[in-house]
Design a protein around this nucleic acid. Structure first.
Lengths: 343, 343
DNA sequence: GTGAAAGCGCTAACAT
DNA sequence: ATGTTAGCGCTTTCAC
């Protein structure tokens, strides 16, 4: 009585396409995947592609991954979307992933429930993971490494992860310092990042080396701060301004803190750059809209993102720390000038 | 000669666990997935769990999705990670996803190659998609809808997507306007967002309604701008300051543009708030560090992110526009004051 | 130049 | 309380 009814809304599978094109499913697969070694009559290929179009066929990702062991997806975990430097890293990473026909998916690395991220990798939902956060428990890192899947860190080194992609942070500090020294500053402070961060340590070391190279003394009271937030910058600047002998210039290890430092200087009636000069590491669009516009040293953030994806897509990649050599330079705006004459 | 050698590094499967625990694979599956209806001896369950631990077993996501038709993954596409308002939306969305035992993965909606995002959804890599960008071609939207999978937009309405989650934008405008009117302003301009954005249109309409309610005339030369970037804000402010009769206050439709407006006012030597008052829609941390600190109206961004995830996880959710009623309010800082006496 | 067959790892309905 | 069975949709080797 009832003929074979087309089921209400079944998913379109490769078999449906094969039937419509009057070929074997395996042929459809090879056509869809652009198999190099496939020899096929143009007419047949056209029939297959037409059927694909007609039925709006999209290969099932799960079935494909199950078969091939590849999901075509990379994960990137960052500590905080509100920090503008990650936007740049993500941009570069997404571009590289797209070029390599992969999808990059980004998420926040919540320090609680790290199992979620281990699971993501271990289950094969993502085939490689890039970490830009140090807020992940060592045990979770170990479990990730145990999956034998590609795992790389970007913008920082993480204990237990042998592959990392970083910028030449020490050089960024030296570039900033040369600028300040050239302007005639002799008493230069450093608002540093957290002690736990190797990135912050490299910037500090660049600061120290530049001072030494200039034959200046290293005053430990001039190194303050321990965070990456705007509020950390406020506190650090407050501390510097309370010093009996104030610095005439400050190298701030990151933009967020620099914004805080600028705001605190203003609050205390200290003029930038007349009374004190400020230079920050990391250039972001906002820097030119601050008052005064911030002098910065730009780092190749997008290139770092790109490099991290390329590393993650290289299965047997070499271990070690890769320093990204990209565009990097001083961007002089309004927050730096000569030291005050009595300074 | 050679005994059965344990294969070098084969993936651990459910069969391996079953063998070690001396049970059937299906039992392992039901234990691992906490099957409610399963009746099992404590001793057996313990044996299974021990085997899972011993072997570091992680269920293969592809096999599971293939079987269940669920990937447990949601996608969120935003236009630009550099815009701070998305950080808030993402935060709320990630939290909601985590609570519902799903993973939220965020990416940039590149306007080129929209097929990628269609593919993501159609292939089942993500089981639902949340769009916060209007830079996706109508054809791609159609293709996404054709997958019959949950598709919702957040922070804006998108033609072709019947489910959208937005804030009460008109009210935000009215709150800001009431503040300015109470301060005594009579000539209030509006730096609006792009004409293509319904969000911008709702903010504009709130602005207009507030003027009408106050019995003030609607001067069309006081409505300027057409973008969401800082540079758009610069241009718009420039235009306003060139007017023969300048406004005494400006309602800016978004923070990024407000930063540009502030910067341009400063450049032209116009003091904020003495010469002109500025209030922006959207509160972000940065606002309090600007000079002057920006008066804003906060919108429930995180709540919108949360609501969009809940909607996306509700298969047969009701169509229509959902207005998120969350915390929303005026945050008075330094950029607003009474109009100049001659104003 | 095209087709047949096997199997990736898992779950769910149905035995026993 | 546990096991059997079948199959999700795809790719790939081999056969013709």
């Amino acid at each position: 009585m009832n003929g074979p009814r087309p089921s209400v809304r079944r998913r379109v599978t490769i078999t449906d396409v094969a039937k419509l094109a009057r070929v074997d499913p395996s042929l459809v697969s090879r056509v869809v995947n652009d198999d190099e070694r496939l020899v096929i009559r143009d007419e047949t290929r056209a029939r297959v592609l037409a059927a694909v179009q007609d039925l709006h066929y999209h290969p099932n990702a799960a079935a494909r991954s199950l078969r091939t062991n590849h999901s075509g997806t990379l994960g990137l975990l960052i500590p905080d979307f509100a920090n503008p430097i990650y936007a740049e890293i993500i941009k570069g990473a997404e571009q590289a992933a797209t070029e390599r026909r992969s999808v990059l998916l980004t998420g926040t690395a919540f320090p609680d429930r790290p199992e979620r991220y281990v699971e993501l990798l271990a289950s094969g939902q993502v085939e490689a993971l890039i970490l830009a956060s140090d807020r992940i428990a060592p045990a979770a890192i170990q479990a990730m490494m145990a999956t034998r899947r590609p795992l790389v860190s970007v913008n920082l080194a993480i204990a237990g992860i042998p592959r990392s992609i970083v910028a030449d942070d020490a050089r960024a500090s030296r570039i900033a310092m040369e600028h300040l020294l050239t302007l005639g500053h002799l008493r230069i402070a450093h608002i540093r990042g957290p002690a736990s961060s190797d990135t912050a340590r490299r910037r500090l070391s660049g600061y120290r080396r530049a001072l030494r190279a200039a034959g200046l003394e290293l005053d430990p009271t001039l190194v303050v701060g321990a965070g990456y937030t705007t509020e950390d910058g406020v506190l650090a600047m407050h501390q510097l301004l309370a010093l009996p002998r104030r610095p005439t210039a400050v190298l701030v290890a990151n933009v967020a803190a620099a914004i805080g430092a600028l705001s605190e200087a203003r609050r205390e009636g200290v003029r930038v750059p007349q009374d004190i000069s400020l230079v920050a590491i990391h250039d972001i669009a906002l820097a030119s809209y601050l008052s005064p516009a911030l002098t910065t040293v730009s780092l190749p953030l997008a290139e770092m993102g790109r490099a991290s994806v390329l590393a993650a897509l290289t299965e047997g990649g070499a271990d070690g720390q890769q320093i990204v050599r990209g565009p990097m330079g001083l961007i002089v705006r309004e927050s730096t000038g000569h030291p005050p004459s009595n300074g």
